[in-house]
Design a protein around this nucleic acid. Sequence first.
DNA 1: GATAGTTTGATACGCGTGTTTTAATCGAGC
DNA 2: GCTCGATTAAAACACGCGTATCAAACTATC
Lengths: 199, 199
Amino acid sequence: MSSAASGDSTRDKILRAGEKLFAADGFDRVTLRQIAREADQRNVAAVQYHFGSKAGLLSAIVDDHRIEIDDRRAELLEKAEKDGVNGDFATLLSILVDPLAAKLDSPAGRAYLRIQAQGLTNSEMRPATRSLIGRIGRHLDELEPTARTASHRGRFALLLLFHALADRAGQESSGRARRADRAAFVAELSASLRGLMSA
Amino acid sequence: MSSAASGDSTRDKILRAGEKLFAADGFDRVTLRQIAREADQRNVAAVQYHFGSKAGLLSAIVDDHRIEIDDRRAELLEKAEKDGVNGDFATLLSILVDPLAAKLDSPAGRAYLRIQAQGLTNSEMRPATRSLIGRIGRHLDELEPTARTASHRGRFALLLLFHALADRAGQESSGRARRADRAAFVAELSASLRGLMSA
DNA sequence: GATAGTTTGATACGCGTGTTTTAATCGAGC
DNA sequence: GCTCGATTAAAACACGCGTATCAAACTATC
């Protein structure tokens, strides 16, 4: 309930510390003591108190962002359906891509992208982001059934989407990529996805 | 020196056990005791003896496969250069894709693909597979410089290549995908990469 | 068949982990 | 100003980790 307001309560500090460290080092390598230190907390049990467990902290981090992304997507999708643009491939693609790509704007968002990609690779957190993607997928199916249905393209597109954004997030957070190039990056990614789906 | 001959020496059993467990659970989650058990070894220090450390075991696993893949690629590339086909995009792409995709054939190869994808996400083992890819990349640059150079497409292609294969490897190893579909999968992947690069 | 070298087995060590527990501190509300 | 719930601190816990050590078993060479 409080998560959206990014105050500096201890809970929020732990959340941001976890984000940062999980993204940079990987969930398994990060210690609760590291997190406490990063959050200016002398208490090694702070994570247990506020989130129950290390896994609980991960869920809190991921859910926060995922919910915001899905809300934004639902909003855009409803608008598109109302405008009767649900036959427009580019529109549907941007509904899929843009709210995720917007996560590149903040350090917290970039951390989320990297964490989500870790989860994809290690085959967990599968329910994440699923519902909305399914709904958009159905629209895409109506559009060009042969290009998507029963083929692997949809899955490829999802893999590329997440991993490319995570890769970019890592580069920006480590200074290996400049923020100014971001628009070009997103445009390239969208074009690549378009090309991938309709080759 | 001995790795190619997949005998059932203790060393090889440990190597295969590590492959299997690293791929399924992730490098960090796997303990040396699990590996020893999986290798029918009562000795918990067997990994230290044969590979020095847990990291040494990982290197041994990855290097074995990577060397074989790069050798195969070099072979195909030389043949293509001799035939003067180095202007053929499809040929170059298949040199990049086929030796990797061939890894889907064996359980050990599938494990390698998943492990390599983990490494990509967690940003290590970067030197891996680099040399050959660079050489092929130069050929691609000569072909259509605008489509690759200074754009993000090359990186996208690499990400998709590795993660799609790792994803497929995971599905096959867990029975969620049938081996019969593999040819179609590889064809789809190649087509997707082609579409991605030239959209 | 004794011997040197290599491999395997078994045990122990030191340490860091996530978590639990208990005590101290804080902050409203009356 | 006191009280009580919520939060932070501090210490301890049980456990599993990677590693080191040393003895036993095996293997080949002469």
